[in-house]
Every structure is written in structure tokens, then in C-alpha cells.
């Protein structure tokens, strides 16, 4: 887990707190914290990963001030916070879109959600079943512990399990590399990881009526369906402490960083 902790001389809007949680949000938060600390010398923001669930339980136990999460709180997590008498605030700081990618040699350019479900759960095994050439489909996925895996499973596979034959890659970069060198491959990656060596598919969540290509614009307008909000959660009692940083993240400058890191800005 990466760790950023910088402190310098005393100045201006000094803040000192910890952020913990989702590995999807981690690179973004790190960058934001870095820029913020550079602008406000003397501030110290410690950012660590560990997964969305880890962040929320840290918020509950009081070992972090902000929990970063790539999903909204589950009901049982809300209950636990309620039980502990901790009122919290939820802030969406950016959006992340997942692109479904194939090898550039593949002639397929669009798929419906139902087709994607069939492919990723192993019911559809050959590209000719969805109108492509006679070629075996090779499914690439992230590891089970990744938030991206969970999101894709819940959102695209209607909570069904991935096929046991799916190849689980340790990093998003490895998925891009493998899809680019395997002709029958299909995989999914965050918008930020899209490259020329792979091709993103248009997807339809209304049974084939409209297909949308993934891009910052379509994700922003919510036209692209595989989009998820990224959240910061913090306790109401901590609001004063974290609000200067939060204001910065949501400011035009902070949102510019969001865009630069490959995520989708809120406004």
C-alpha cells in the first residue's frame, strides 16, 4: 500500500489528517493531497489504500478521518455507523467509467449487457455466438479482491460469478497488455487505462436499443452505463478538519487533476 506523508514549515491553511480506503481512488487522492500539501505548506495528509471496506471500518474505529470508497456505503455499514452513534457525510468527488476492451483485430464493436453477462460468466464461449468470427473467447478479469471486480460483477453480471476459466490478472496494466496480444481476448479496465493497443466496445444496457462508447463526455452525461461514483465519507464531527481539503478537491483546480488522472469530473 502506498503511503504519502509530507510535512513542512508552518503556514496558511494547515491541515493534518488521514485518508484510507479504496485502491481505485488511491492514485487520485494521492495526487490531490500532493498538490494540496505543496500549496499549503505545513499540511500533512496521509493517504493509504486497502480497499473500500477497509476504509469504512477504519472510519468506524476512528483510525481514519476520511474513508475513500469506490461504492456507496452498504446498508449494514450504515447500520454499524448508526449503532455507534456516528453521523457521517457523503461526498462524490469524481466518477470512474469501466471500458470493456477487446483486441484491435476483433471485428465486434458493440455488445449488450446480456451478451457481456453471457461472456463473462462463461455461457457464451465463442465470438461467432455474438456475431463475430469463429474464435474462442478468452476472458480477462481483475483479481477477486479488487473493487473493480466487485463493481463489474454487481453492475454487469447481475451478481453472478465470473466463469472459473476467467484469467485473473494482478493489475489493470497486465489486462491491457494481455488483451493487446491475445486475439480472442475481452477484458475491462478503468477509462484512465485505455490505450491504442486495445479497442473499447460500445455497450448497451437497454437490450440493444442504444449503444454508447465510453468517454469522459458520455460518462459525465451518464449516457455510458458502466459508470460509478467515487466517494469520500467523513464523520460530521470532523467536518471542520477536512473541509479545506474537500473544497480544494471539488474546486476547478482539483477537478482538473481528476481529469488529468483519467477520471471523470463531477461538474
Amino acid at each position: 500500500m502506498a503511503l504519502v506523508a509530507i510535512s513542512a514549515s508552518v503556514f496558511a491553511q494547515k491541515v493534518n489528517f488521514k485518508i484510507k480506503g479504496s485502491d481505485t481512488v488511491l492514485p487520485l487522492t494521492q495526487k490531490e493531497a500532493e498538490v494540496y500539501m505543496k500549496k499549503n505548506a505545513g499540511s500533512s495528509i496521509m493517504v493509504t489504500g486497502g480497499g473500500s471496506g477497509v476504509g469504512v471500518s477504519a472510519l468506524l474505529s476512528g483510525t481514519t478521518d476520511i474513508a475513500q470508497s469506490s461504492r456507496s456505503l452498504k446498508l449494514d455499514e450504515k447500520m454499524k455507523l448508526n449503532d455507534a452513534g456516528k453521523a457521517f457525510t457523503e461526498k462524490i468527488i469524481a466518477y470512474d467509467a469501466l471500458a470493456v476492451i477487446v483486441n484491435p483485430a476483433n471485428k465486434i464493436s458493440k455488445l449488450t449487457r446480456e451478451q457481456l453477462e453471457g461472456i463473462f460468466t462463461g455461457k457464451i464461449k465463442n465470438w461467432k455466438e455474438v456475431g463475430g468470427e469463429d474464435l474462442k473467447i478468452v476472458v480477462y478479469s481483475r483479481e477477486t479482491s479488487s473493487g473493480t471486480y466487485e463493481f463489474f460483477k454487481e453492475h454487469v453480471l447481475s451478481k453472478k460469478n465470473f466463469a472459473p476459466s476467467a484469467l485473473l490478472m494482478p493489475a489493470t496494466g497486465a489486462i491491457v497488455q494481455s488483451v493487446s496480444q491475445t486475439k480472442g481476448a475481452i477484458g475491462y479496465v478503468g477509462l484512465a487505462y485505455l490505450e491504442k493497443s486495445v479497442r473499447a466496445l460500445d455497450v448497451s444496457f437497454d437490450k440493444g436499443k442504444t449503444f454508447t462508447a465510453p468517454s469522459v463526455e458520455t460518462a459525465k452525461s451518464k449516457k455510458y452505463p458502466i459508470t460509478r461514483p467515487l466517494y469520500y465519507y467523513f464523520l460530521k464531527t470532523n467536518e471542520k478538519k477536512v473541509s479545506p481539503f474537500l473544497t480544494f478537491v471539488l474546486s476547478p483546480e482539483g477537478q482538473q487533476i481528476v481529469l488529468k488522472e483519467g477520471y471523470v469530473p463531477v461538474q
Binding site: 500500500m1 485502491d23 486497502g50 480497499g51 471496506g53 477497509v54 471500518s57 483479481e143 477477486t144 479482491s145 479488487s146 476459466s165 484469467l167 485473473l168 494482478p170
Partner: peptide, 17 residues
Amino acid sequence: PARTLPATIAAELGEAP
């Protein structure tokens, strides 16, 4: 393709609660 014991531990321990 195959999966090995040590690779599984390395890939998953980091995020297992």
C-alpha cells in the same frame, strides 16, 4: 492457464479483510 498456491496468497492477502 493455471493458478498456483503462492500466487493466490500474494494476489489476495492484501485486500482480504
